[in-house]
Simulated scan of single mutants.
Amino acid sequence: MENVWDYPRPPAFEPVSKPIRIEFAGRVIAVTDAAFRVLETSHPPVYYLPRSAFIGCTLEPVSGRSFCEWKGDAVYFNVRVGDQVAERAAWSYPDPTPPTFAAIRDHLAVYAGAMDRCFVGDEAVTPQPGGFYGGWITSDLKGPFKGGPGTMGW
């Protein structure tokens, strides 16, 4: 078991050894063996996939940004398959804070709760609680996880 309270702050990132698959609107929209995960204290990992992994959808840039003290400015995307849209469901750091997070340039993360299903290997993930953070919970993680009611001040 990985305890998310053992993850570092500032966060670290590492390559993912299992394939990642994302399904939306009844189809596979992304698949890769070349993802990274960001590990931050109290959070389940956030998975970043290369932009080239998104083959079954359209990524539509949307207005608005957010700022991460560790990774820099994030931009957001709607995920579209035909007439089905998951609004602001993906984000990216086009100019991540170097040198630590330079490897996630041209990668996107996706809110698992906005998709039909997301997989790490053969395991369907559970979205991080609360809808603000984008972590993916797998059975090998131990919490509690930041994001649910009453956890913003942790």
Rank of each mutant, 00 (worst) to 15 (best):
A124L: 13
F13M: 14
A25H: 09
G153L: 05
S66N: 12
S17V: 09
A103M: 11
E2R: 14
F119N: 01
H43D: 08
V75T: 13
F67V: 11
V125H: 02
I22N: 00
I104P: 00
P11D: 05
P96D: 11
D6E: 04
T32P: 01
Y111I: 00
D106I: 13
S66A: 12
P45H: 08
T97M: 01
W154E: 04
T138I: 06
G130C: 06
A89H: 04
V110D: 02
A25W: 15
D33T: 15
P11H: 10
Y48T: 12
G82A: 11
F132D: 04
Y133D: 07
A30D: 02
C118S: 08
G143A: 10
D116P: 09
T41R: 15
P15M: 10
F101S: 11
K18M: 14
I137C: 02
P44Y: 05
G150Q: 06
I104R: 00
R27Y: 00
V85W: 05
Q128T: 14
G134Q: 01
P10L: 05
V75L: 14
L141W: 07
V46I: 13
A102V: 09
E23Y: 00
R80A: 09
G64Q: 14
L59S: 15
P8E: 04
R105K: 08
T151W: 01
Y133R: 11
